[in-house]
Measured scan of single mutants.
Amino acid sequence: MGFKLLSKLLVYLTASIMAIASPLAFSVDSSGEYPTVSEIPVGEVRLYQIADGVWSHIATQSFDGAVYPSNGLIVRDGDELLLIDTAWGAKNTAALLAEIEKQIGLPVTRAVSTHFHDDRVGGVDVLRAAGVATYASPSTRRLAEVEGNEIPTHSLEGLSSSGDAVRFGPVELFYPGAAHSTDNLIVYVPSASVLYGGCAIYELSRTSAGNVADADLAEWPTSIERIQQHYPEAQFVIPGHGLPGGLDLLKHTTNVVKAHTNRSVVE
């Protein structure tokens, strides 16, 4: 069995187990497998329904001669939608809004960016022009300005110390501490036991640490421990890039980060 097929099978099995364990909360999309990078042309966006009122959005972007996937989250909030992270750029984010209108038909009224990198804030200006209120932590807003990236308009308070959590509509926002970046936030959907790890969490097929220019490698494993301790009931975990899975993604990420750190020390 090929690795790609095995990865998709694991996603399907995880979703099936969740649907059985929580039949009222989960209505997993039966329309197909989780979209992969090879299936999404740059400039297009796919939506994948995880649970009743919960979707991931998947886009792709060219970077350094390669094409990478990027995940975000959409959560229903009454007759409105909360968006977590842009679709990595203005063109993708405009396509995301169009796809949401086509498939869901509810307005996106608020959006949260989970850290300051372009795959999370690139497209904020498109959201703002569409009347979406954009939010991020003060740290993310400051770092985005320093980096020359787009800056969300509103500040999220109460997320300055490791372990801080605040309720934001249908989700809980959690600051686990520094990891992929010093400002990275985690998003949890309690009604569906869905954990969105953003770039602080890796997919299972990833074996290298990737972009760690703004990471705190020493603190990252401790931050992941905080996530595990705060959300032990999480059933569906979405990484910032690639295929979702279960809580095993947290341990896998820790292993990859520690291996990278150990290699760096040896070198």
Rank of each mutant, 00 (worst) to 15 (best):
G43N: 15
A66R: 06
D164L: 14
G163A: 12
H260Y: 06
H260I: 10
G123M: 02
S62E: 10
V237T: 14
A98P: 12
E99N: 15
G163H: 14
S22D: 10
V237L: 09
T14C: 09
V265S: 10
P221K: 05
L5C: 11
V189H: 05
F236E: 07
L82G: 02
V265I: 05
S208H: 12
I84T: 05
V54L: 05
S193C: 03
T14S: 12
W88I: 00
T36S: 05
S191H: 05
A111K: 03
G198C: 03
S27M: 05
T140R: 02
A98E: 15
I50E: 04
G210N: 14
T134A: 11
V266T: 14
L97W: 04
N262R: 08
G131H: 13
Y202F: 09
V166D: 08
N71H: 01
T140F: 03
R110N: 12
D164Q: 15
V265E: 14
R46F: 15
A133F: 12
R128M: 06
L159P: 05
P107D: 15
G198S: 05
W88D: 00
T153A: 08
L173Y: 02
R76W: 08
E225M: 14
R263M: 05
V265A: 11
A129L: 15
I224H: 00
A133Q: 11
V189D: 04
V42F: 06
A25G: 07
L127F: 05
V124L: 11
P69K: 07
A192C: 03
T134Y: 01
S139V: 09
H115N: 03
S16W: 13
L204K: 12
I238F: 07
I20L: 14
E219K: 07
T253R: 00
S161Q: 14
P239G: 14
R141D: 02
D164F: 13
A59I: 07
L13V: 09
S113A: 14
G122F: 04
L73H: 02
P69H: 07
H154R: 11
S16K: 09
H241V: 00
V257S: 05
A15R: 06
M18W: 05
Q235C: 15
A133C: 12
S191Y: 12
L250D: 02
L173P: 03
P176V: 02
S181P: 01
G148C: 05
E33M: 07
P23K: 10
S181Q: 00
S30C: 10
A51S: 08
E203G: 12
F116Y: 15
A200F: 01
R141P: 03
Y196F: 13
A51N: 12
V108Q: 00
S205W: 10
V75Y: 02
L127S: 02
P170F: 05
L185R: 01
E80V: 15
I238S: 01
A15H: 15
Q235K: 14
T109M: 11
S56Q: 04
S205I: 07
P221V: 14
E44V: 13
S160G: 14
T109L: 09
T36L: 06
L143Q: 07
R142V: 09
V124W: 03
G72I: 00
N184L: 02
D64P: 11
T140A: 03
F174Y: 13
T109G: 13
L247W: 08
G148W: 13
D119K: 01
G197D: 02
I20M: 14
Y12R: 11
S31I: 05
S155P: 10
L156F: 10
S191D: 14
V256S: 14
S30V: 09
S160N: 14
E147S: 08
L81T: 14
S139Y: 06
F168V: 12
S161I: 11
I58M: 14
G72F: 02
P239V: 09
P35E: 12
T182G: 10
V187S: 05
S205A: 12
E225W: 12
L159D: 02
A66P: 06
E39K: 11
A87L: 02
A21W: 12
M18V: 05
V28P: 05
L5E: 06
S160M: 12
A51K: 05
A90Y: 13
L250M: 06
L82W: 15
E99S: 14
A209D: 09
L247E: 14
T222N: 13
S139M: 13
L217T: 05
T222D: 11
A259F: 04
S22L: 09
N149D: 05
A94D: 14
A111C: 13
N262S: 08
E267M: 14
R46Q: 07
L97P: 02
L156P: 03
A209G: 12
K91N: 11
E44R: 07
Y12P: 02
F174Q: 08
T60I: 08
G245Y: 04
A133E: 10
L73M: 06
S223F: 03
F174E: 03
D248R: 09
V212E: 09
L243N: 15
N149V: 11
Y231H: 04
E147W: 08
K8I: 06
P244L: 14
V126N: 07
H252V: 10
L73F: 04
V126W: 08
Y202T: 05
F168A: 04
V266W: 09
A200H: 03
A234V: 11
K4F: 03
G197N: 04
P107H: 04
W88C: 00
P239Q: 02
A165E: 12
I40E: 08
E33F: 13
R76E: 08
V257G: 02
A130M: 05
Q228V: 07
T36F: 06
D164Y: 15
L250I: 04
V187I: 05
E80K: 15
V146A: 12
A179D: 03
H252G: 10
F116S: 15
L96Q: 03
V37L: 09
I186P: 00
V189M: 14
N255H: 09
H180C: 00
L96Y: 00
L6R: 11
N211M: 13
L243D: 14
L250G: 01
T261H: 12
I74Q: 01
A66Q: 07
T153S: 10
D77R: 07
D216S: 12
L250T: 13
A136S: 08
K4I: 15
D85C: 00
V42N: 13
T140V: 02
W220A: 11
V54R: 01
V28G: 10
S38R: 10
A179V: 03
E80P: 03
I224S: 05
F63R: 05
S137F: 04
S70E: 02
A136C: 11
Q228P: 04
Q228F: 15
R76N: 09
V266G: 14
S30K: 12
D64Q: 12
L96A: 12
G122E: 08
V189L: 10
Y48F: 09
H57I: 02
D29N: 13
S161G: 14
L83E: 05
L217D: 04
V124M: 09
V256L: 13
S30L: 11
D64W: 06
N92G: 13
V121I: 08
V108W: 02
A66S: 05
E225S: 12
H57T: 11
I58W: 06
A200V: 07
R167L: 07
A200T: 11
T254M: 07
I224Y: 00
S70N: 07
S160P: 12
F3H: 12
S62C: 08
E101D: 14
L143Y: 12
K102H: 04
H180D: 01
S193G: 08
S31N: 05
R46D: 07
V171G: 02
T140D: 02
V187T: 05
A15I: 04
T140Y: 03
V67P: 08
G177C: 01
Q103K: 14
R263Q: 10
V194F: 04
F116N: 06
E233H: 12
S264V: 14
E39N: 15
A234L: 15
D77L: 09
G78R: 07
S139R: 09
L9D: 07
G169R: 05
M18N: 04
D29G: 08
L97S: 04
G131I: 04
T109N: 15
L204P: 13
E157N: 15
G246W: 08
K258L: 10
V132D: 02
D216P: 10
L159T: 14
N149L: 09
L250Q: 00
W220T: 01
P69G: 07
G123D: 03
E80T: 13
I186S: 11
D125S: 11
L47V: 07
F168G: 02
Q61T: 09
A66C: 05
I201A: 12
Y202P: 02
D79Q: 15
I186E: 01
V166T: 10
F3D: 05
S27P: 05
E99Q: 09
V265F: 04
A144G: 10
G246E: 06
I84V: 14
V75K: 01
A21K: 07
S7Q: 04
H117V: 00
G131K: 12
D248C: 13
